[in-house]
């Protein structure tokens, strides 16, 4: 079966019955739009930036930042310099150097953590793959700089932002992360406590032996 066409064309004479009528109809639409733009809310679609700003949604992502707990950005940094984000980053804009102590033992924190935001394409894959809840996407967007090369290379001090900032930016996500981390910390503490307790009881078990031996004596 030959399917029939859906687009109907008026034959030419009908189309041209009143020359210019189609144009006029279109102009009515334009005029309506212009007039309505003064009083109808859905026609007033622009905001006067920078005096006014459109709200950004909590999901909005721009460039990554590093999250730290507590007050000190260095001590509280969640990042362990595992370089998963560095490997997974599609445009390869992350650069990480692991900090080591004098004996070459890993301190599990980054000595250098650079993100070149002139290369970053805001995909959010780093935040997605991070197993340590450390890297998240920021909502900050007014970042123009005079210096193209070094001004757009963000170092650790620029990247580190507190967990409170994250909470303010994305309350839902940050709340979940905080709750999960609390559970983990509690678990770790409990495990540690259990270990300590076990060590204590072992010690106690080991200790009383001579005393029990000694007691009858």
């Amino acid at each position: 079966m030959e399917p029939s066409a859906d687009i109907k064309r008026l034959p030419a004479p009908a189309r041209w019955s009143i020359p210019g009528i189609g144009l006029l109809k279109g102009m009515v639409v334009t005029a309506q739009n212009m007039i309505q733009s003064y009083y109808r809310k859905e026609r007033m679609t622009t905001v006067q930036y920078p005096e006014e700003r459109a709200p950004i949604s909590p999901n909005f992502r721009n460039f990554p930042f590093l999250c730290y707990d507590g007050e000190d950005p260095k001590a509280g940094l969640r990042c362990t310099a595992c370089t998963i984000c560095e490997t997974e980053c599609p445009p390869q804009c992350i650069y990480i150097v692991l900090e080591r102590d004098a004996n070459g033992k890993s301190l599990k924190r980054p000595k250098v953590f650079d993100i070149d935001v002139s290369v970053c394409m805001n995909c959010g894959i780093c935040a997605e793959v991070c197993p340590f809840d450390s890297i998240y996407m920021d909502g900050e967007y007014e970042l123009s700089k005079q210096d193209r090369f070094n001004g757009l290379l963000f170092h650790l001090d620029r990247l580190a932002k507190s967990a409170d900032y994250h909470m303010k930016l994305r309350p839902k996500e940050a709340g979940e992360v905080a709750a999960r981390r609390k559970v983990e910390v509690d678990k770790k503490r409990a495990v540690q406590a259990a270990k300590d307790a076990k060590a204590q009881t072992d010690k106690d078990m080991a200790k009383p032996e001579p005393t029990t031996k000694g007691e009858p004596a």
Binding site: G20, G22, K25
Partner: peptide
């Protein structure tokens, strides 16, 4: 709300002699 917008857009251009 999209249907009315399409109506408006079609009114805007369908009969337009220049477009035709």
């Amino acid at each position: 709300e999209y249907g009315p917008f399409l109506d408006e857009m079609e009114k805007f251009l369908v009969g337009n002699e220049i477009l035709l």
